[in-house]
């Protein structure tokens, strides 16, 4: 189980998380939605100890992540796969070596077993023939899939996906959605998915949480979110430029943006 309890995080004067609280139960896929810069990536970076909260606790399987000694933190990380927004592949290594990195670190498998696992992971993301290529030779979508393969090769208990479908064409996005669903349904992996793509959120999520003003504005099942009455959540999921308006006005982007900005600034829990 992953738990954020009343987490505060600021960078200089800028408050990013301001009392963020959320639970992710085993076997779930919780999708975190929210505006760009709302702090979604910051929230999941706390789970693997890449960031430490200013206040509050972040727990994974009852381990308080910020207070874990370094050795135990690395042991915990071995059970968590992390798919980065821009894949974060090691560009000096081949795709095969990228996917094998975590397995080699564990030191539990022979090289032939690692090669087998790498091939299996790349097969899972429909990229069986890229092992000997370098990241620079792949398209953005292929790199994202390799990022997923690198995470799933470890057979982790949890996977954190940071905008896995952003910037991809609809077909590749659907392939990645299917992959995330398969990971949960077939391998029982618990997932946290950050996305702006509501179609993907509805398809992948068992629950959806909206992060707004540093805290969870609403959390619920896909159906609950789809039928929400909260104006801020509605605006976001329907992709409207203003709280009240129907759609973004191409003719007058200035006022529409200002109104949207006002809407974001206001509103209570």
């Amino acid at each position: 189980m992953i738990k954020w309890v009343d987490v505060y995080k600021a960078f200089g004067e800028k408050k990013v998380l301001d009392g963020f609280t959320l639970d992710v139960h085993e076997g779930e896929a919780v999708v975190i939605i929210g505006y760009s810069g709302a702090g979604k990536s910051v929230a999941i970076k706390h789970v693997v100890g890449l960031l430490e909260p200013d206040r509050g606790t972040v727990e994974v399987d009852d381990n308080d992540v910020p207070t874990l000694p370094r050795k135990e933190l690395y042991e915990l990380r071995a059970h968590i796969g992390y798919v980065f927004q821009f894949a974060a592949l090691f560009d000096s290594m081949t795709i095969g070596d990228n996917v094998a990195m975590g397995l080699r670190k564990r030191g539990e498998m022979s090289e032939s077993d690692i090669a087998h696992r790498v091939a299996e992971a790349l097969e899972l993301v429909d990229l069986p023939d890229v092992q000997h290529q370098y990241p620079a030779e792949l398209s953005g979508g292929m790199r994202k899939r390799v990022g997923i393969a690198r995470a799933v090769a470890l057979r982790p208990k949890y996977i954190l996906y940071d905008e896995p479908t952003t910037g991809l064409d609809p077909v590749t996005s659907a392939v990645i959605d299917e992959l995330m669903i398969r990971m949960r349904e077939k391998l029982g992996v618990t997932s946290v998915v950050i996305t702006h793509d509501m179609r993907s959120a509805y398809r992948v999520g068992s629950r959806i949480a909206m992060l707004y003003d540093g805290r969870v504005r609403q959390v619920g099942t896909v159906e609950e979110i789809q039928h929400t009455k909260d104006p801020i959540v509605r605006q976001f999921i329907e992709g409207r430029a203003t709280l009240e308006g129907d759609a973004a006005s191409l003719a007058a982007p200035g006022p529409a943006f200002e109104s949207g900005a006002t809407a974001r600034g206001g509103g209570a829990e």
Partner: peptide
């Protein structure tokens, strides 16, 4: 470059120091 492209973070998540 590794830092700004999150490759260092990726190393950490793969349990490398």
């Amino acid at each position: 470059t590794m830092r700004v492209t999150e490759q260092v973070d990726a190393l950490e998540t793969l349990a490398y120091d």
